[in-house]
Design a protein around this nucleic acid. Structure first.
Lengths: 112, 112
DNA sequence: CTGTATCCTCATCGATACTG
DNA sequence: CAGTATCGATGAGGATACAG
């Protein structure tokens, strides 16, 4: 098993790196929706994430865009229209999300 | 895409369920180490997670045990000895962790 | 419609000390 | 060695209001 060193000299697992990039409460779900459905507008996407606040929504989207996982296209119309879609880089995360989706679907069913 | 209803009537994604079970900063890494190496003692495992506090360590281990993902075996010797290992149920999460490990290894390499 | 800014709350987490 | 208990700091995250 490889455990490369972090900047601080501490041993770190690659999984920690992945978690830092795609971890958290909302990012995986946002990426999943965009990865599966292709493209969503802001409020459209928001409706798919029950419970997410306005603040979290834009914050997470911005971070995902800065990390190059999603793309933001703005139409200067009235009313405004913004479309989010997944990038090629973002698609590299889909195998992880697929596994998570399968696991969740299977094990949740067992609980009921 | 299936979006079953949560207890509160809200639409929920299976990925959210998975995250609730194995998400967070430490659980994935703990499971990964136990899944790959087989068995670890308490302090042994702790050394593999640089930065984790005593409190988090026992807390996360306890939760993982309660969820049936890991098994705790205590030897009543002096000094005490406790061994943690992954269960069959915990192993079902390994495919996810493997994907995360691969992604992290590849993309971290690109940063350097 | 698509955001940003502010305030405030609450859970998370680290540090420390203590126990069997 | 393998924990538990307590306290305090920190930050995530929600509610609300406002802007372009």
């Amino acid at each position: 098993m490889d455990l490369p060193l972090g900047e601080d000299g501490k041993l770190k697992c690659s999984i920690e790196y992945t978690l830092k990039k795609m971890g958290g409460k909302w990012k995986p779900v946002i990426l999943w929706h965009l990865g599966v459905d292709g493209t969503h507008r802001y409020n459209e996407l928001r409706r798919l994430l029950p419970g997410i606040s306005h603040k979290m929504m834009s914050q997470q989207l911005k971070e995902l865009e800065e990390d190059g996982f999603i793309q933001r296209v703005q139409y200067n119309t009235i009313p405004p229209k913004v479309e989010y879609s997944i990038t090629d880089s973002g698609k590299t995360l889909m195998p992880i999300l697929e596994k998570m989706h399968v696991w969740g679907t299977e094990h949740r069913a067992m609980e009921l």
